[in-house]
């Protein structure tokens, strides 16, 4: 009985082939698996990264070929051809992944380098800014105080009792304007002060007018007026003895204050 069945298979196959009009002996899936294998095995990257999957594919392909050539078993042939072609796809994907992983490693290095570059650029810029600020502060003869950076414009700016700026003051004003141009995020408070000659009211008005004059001079040099607030202090905040001519001269002054950035809002709001 077994023999009969075994005999009948090739017989049946012959019948089938004959029925198909003597079609050539071929299995499409086997042919495409063979073609895929030949492409993949000539790809150096695939061979290098997925050798064991390519071996699996080769073995499955051999089984498919054997089943077809020796025994003409179409279903088994197709099965092994299918396994082979899937293994080839797997091998190609593994190769692709390993290539990407390798690229990822070099890219990580590249990213670190670029990040480093960005950081050093930042440091350079910060250093440049600090240097520029230091130079400007020196030029203005400014001082760093609890209220922020204070540049004092001495009384040479004004004649006694007058609020109009003297010609000679322009260099000092230029320095303030240049600082404000260089550091556009900075705002300024312009504060007028007087000596104790004259009435309090007169001095208060005078100190206000002088502050306004300085503000107007800065605006004339292109500084946005919204960055500058003014106030008159009158004679209440002397920096020297009002009993001497020299002391009174020192007290007649305008102070330009650049509050520290985080203090700015509160200082300006209390105006």
């Amino acid at each position: 009985m077994k023999k009969l069945i075994k005999l009948s298979i090739p017989l049946l196959s012959c019948l089938v082939i004959t029925a198909c009009g003597g079609a050539p002996k071929k299995v499409d899936s086997l042919e495409s698996a063979q073609a895929a294998y030949s492409t993949a095995s000539s790809n150096e990257v695939v061979v290098r990264h997925a050798a064991s999957e390519m071996d699996d594919a080769r073995n499955a392909l051999a089984k498919a070929e054997k089943n077809w050539k020796n025994d003409g078993k179409r279903s088994r042939t197709e099965h092994y051809a299918y396994v082979a072609s899937q293994k080839i796809k797997i091998a190609e994907l593994i190769a692709q992944r390993k290539e990407d992983d390798a690229r990822l490693e070099t890219m990580d290095l590249k990213r670190q380098r670029v990040q480093l570059e960005a950081r050093s650029q930042e440091v350079d810029r910060a250093r440049e800014e600090a240097l520029a600020m230091q130079q400007q502060l020196e030029a203005m003869q400014a001082q760093i105080t609890a209220r922020g950076i204070v540049a004092t414009l001495g009384d040479v700016l004004f004649d006694s009792g007058e609020a109009g700026l003297k010609e000679t003051s322009s260099v000092n004003i230029d320095k303030i304007a240049s600082f404000m141009n260089r550091f556009p995020e900075r705002t300024a408070i312009v504060e007028g002060h007087t000596d104790n000659l004259g009435t309090d009211d007169f001095n208060l008005d005078l100190s206000r007018s002088r502050a306004h004059s300085v503000r107007a001079a800065l605006v004339a040099r292109g500084i946005d007026g919204s960055r500058i607030s003014t106030q008159g202090m009158g004679e209440v905040a002397p920096v020297a003895d009002n009993n001497t001519t020299q002391g009174r001269q020192q007290n007649r002054r305008v102070e330009v204050i650049f509050p520290d950035l985080d203090m700015q809002v509160s200082e300006v709001e209390t105006q």
Binding site: H79, Y82, V83, I90, L93, Q96, R97
Partner: peptide, 23 residues
């Protein structure tokens, strides 16, 4: 056997896809 290779392919594709996205 076919289910196994199909699943292996699914895994290989997932991993390749992850690496591609990372790149």
């Amino acid at each position: 056997e076919q289910a196994a290779v199909d699943a292996e392919l699914a895994k290989a594709k997932s991993e390749a896809e992850k690496s591609r996205l990372a790149v």
